[in-house]
Amino acid sequence: MTGEVSVRVCPGGPLLVRGAEVVVDDAGERHPVTRPVVAVCACGMSGRKPWCDSTHKAVPAQAR
């Protein structure tokens, strides 16, 4: 592990994050990363924040 974190924006979907060990949310809560790659919610509607739960698919594209 080089300590490098990569983030890819999935258009209309989540942020795909590789190389992170912890994701800190808006409230300052720390969420340990347990997968080789994680999807972080970008639409704000996930029921499992900070992780994506595919709720964005139910949100109209222009509202994301």
Partner: peptide
Amino acid sequence: HVEADAVHEQVALH
């Protein structure tokens, strides 16, 4: 699978 496949979808597609 809610969480894992939200990731895997992006990985598999792109």
